[in-house]
Simulated assay, not measured.
Amino acid sequence: MASTADRGRFAEIVVIRHGETCWNASRIVQGHLDSELNEIGRQQAVVVAGRLSKEPKFQAIYSSDLKRAAETANIIAKVCNLPEVILDPGMRERHLGDIQGLTLRDAAKLKPEAYKIFLSGKRDGEIPGGGESLDQLNERCVSCLEKIASKHQGERVIVLTHGGVLRELHKHAVSGRSSDGRIHNTSVNVFLISESGNWTIKTWGDISHLHEIGVLNNAFGGDRTSG
């Protein structure tokens, strides 16, 4: 853990993916559509909240305004005695256009153009139906986290977000290199962002708090097919 003096040079931001949802378990593309936590997701939120409550004090908690993230954040805020969750649409998952609300199998049949662009991985590929490109997502979420960091230099804060956003934050922090492996529900990821805008990843993909509950390895989202 960094000393108080060290923390004066940067914001320490604990970024957490929301708990598991019914749509994750059913492998349905969520994007900007709202889905609620399932019972496992609520248990995951309680456990990660207990973990965070034992750490040095947090000054604030922010969250995507999508229900699955906000619900996770509210559980954490209550356990960590944080007075309010600050909702920020800048931390939303990528808008996935025409494939939102479909399984990938159905999307391939019903929305083949959107499906093809989604799986292509092209950074500038905007998904039909109002979807974002990966470059647009990156610009949005990186800008949002830097604004949060600028308000909390020398402090620790929590941010609840989504798998696709976390993948882009990692890419920015390590100069364009994508994260390997899956980003699990309620994984703990710690970024240090300095006043001069330098990013460092202190912790990545930590799910040690889930050893009793476990994770759903075949759920949708958290890998390169985010959402």
Rank of each mutant, 00 (worst) to 15 (best):
D206L: 08
L96E: 03
G214Y: 07
R7P: 00
G197K: 03
D65H: 07
L110R: 14
G90K: 07
S26K: 15
D34H: 13
E212N: 12
G176S: 05
Q44D: 04
G121I: 10
V157D: 04
G101V: 09
I183Q: 02
A70I: 06
L82C: 06
V159I: 11
I127N: 04
L102Q: 09
T225K: 01
L169V: 12
S120H: 04
S196M: 08
T4L: 15
C22F: 06
Q100G: 06
Y115E: 05
S175Y: 11
S26E: 14
G129N: 08
N189K: 12
S175V: 03
P89K: 13
A69K: 02
A5P: 00
G221K: 13
V14F: 01
R92Y: 08
R182W: 05
V15F: 03
G129H: 11
I13Q: 01
Q44G: 00
A70K: 10
E195A: 15
A108E: 14
C144A: 14
N138Q: 14
I13S: 03
V165R: 00
S178A: 12
I86N: 05
I201S: 05
A11H: 01
R156M: 08
G129W: 09
L210Y: 04
S143Q: 05
C80L: 11
E71Y: 00
I40V: 13
W199T: 02
G101D: 11
A107Y: 03
A11Y: 03
D180V: 11
K171G: 00
W199R: 05
N217E: 15
D206I: 05
P128C: 03
V48G: 02
L145M: 07
S175D: 14
G164R: 03
H32W: 15
D124A: 12
N218G: 00
L192R: 09
E39N: 08
V188K: 06
G227R: 06
G125W: 00
R68L: 06
G41T: 08
A149P: 06
V48Y: 01
N218E: 12
N185D: 05
I99S: 06
P112K: 02
A69M: 02
S143G: 02
R123P: 01
E195M: 10
T186C: 09
C141R: 01
L37P: 02
A73G: 15
N24M: 06
K202H: 12
E113H: 13
R17P: 10
D223A: 12
R140V: 13
K151A: 11
I13M: 09
H209Q: 11
A25M: 11
R224A: 04
H32S: 14
I13T: 09
K202E: 15
E126Y: 06
H209Y: 10
T161R: 07
E12S: 10
R156W: 04
E146D: 04
F10P: 00
I76V: 15
T200M: 09
L52P: 01
G154Y: 13
H170L: 00
D106I: 11
G163C: 13
R27W: 09
R156K: 12
G121W: 11
I201R: 11
G222E: 08
D223I: 07
L134Q: 05
A70W: 08
S194T: 15
R177D: 05
F220T: 00
T103L: 03
D124L: 04
R68G: 08
N81P: 01
